[in-house]
Write a protein that binds this DNA or RNA. Structure first.
Lengths: 126, 126
DNA sequence: TGTATTATTGCAAGAGTGTCGCAATAAATA
DNA sequence: TATTTATTGCGACACTCTTGCAATAATACA
């Protein structure tokens, strides 16, 4: 399925770009200046994930967060990395720290989701 | 609020005991032989968490899993380890694999949540 | 430029998880 | 046995996320 450029998609991506962090659908909807349907935002986000442009993070509040992961675009080889959820500023950011593990071959690993929670450097130093 | 012993509570706890893993409400409901209301199971699980008998884990499917976490009560408390969520048997188990990361001192890490998802060795080998 | 193709969108509805209020039930205690 | 009140089932709700369908619009091509 070929993708088409639309104002909606650009708006979603620019909001995420501006924030530099992972955002939920509702957070994106609030930040966006245009009126976009909820379902559409989810579809756009899911498509971006499929295309490898966004990452999906499920936080310990059970909700999905989406982020442009610059660190990963450089390598392009889907290197798993840690995420940091700051309880003070309520954001999730990508860490350069890679996730390493070795597991018995009996396990089939399909997804990796590593989240550190606490206070981020911006909040702890101020 | 004083707790009372009921068949429902015992059934929930015995299912969790038998599995030795973290289970969701729906998984518990399926495994239980008696017919118990959904809301009741949630209330029982939440009470157990309050009383410090169960742990609550939010997995990367956004759902809550509950477990009697014996390892955590002992000396393994400080040691962070990976969890594995099996999409086939709907359980989460603790892996011996430790979680390693080094982060700038500016970050204050309070919680570590690392979940690998896929098919566990019990399900993949059978 | 005009037309055809089909990706995208909005809307409504649905599925799944988790919670809550209320009345009925039943465990613990006196 | 009678009383107290924790527990339960039921229904309804809130929330997140998805899906089917028809309308719209971005792209390709004549």
């Amino acid at each position: 399925m070929k993708r088409r450029n639309t104002a909606t998609k650009e708006a979603v991506l620019s909001v995420l770009n501006a924030s530099g962090k992972a955002m939920s659908q509702s957070a994106i909807e609030k930040k966006i200046n245009v009126d976009i349907n909820r379902a559409t935002i989810y579809r756009v986000l899911n498509n971006y994930c499929e295309d490898g442009i966004l990452h999906r993070i499920v936080a310990d509040d059970g909700r999905q967060y989406f982020a442009i992961c610059l660190e990963c675009d450089e390598d392009r080889k889907s290197l798993h990395h840690f995420h940091f959820r700051c309880e003070k500023c309520e954001t999730i950011s990508c860490l350069p720290e890679p996730v390493n593990f070795s597991l018995s071959n009996d396990y089939i690993v399909e997804k990796v989701n590593c989240i550190l929670t606490g206070v981020c450097k911006d909040c702890s130093t101020s």
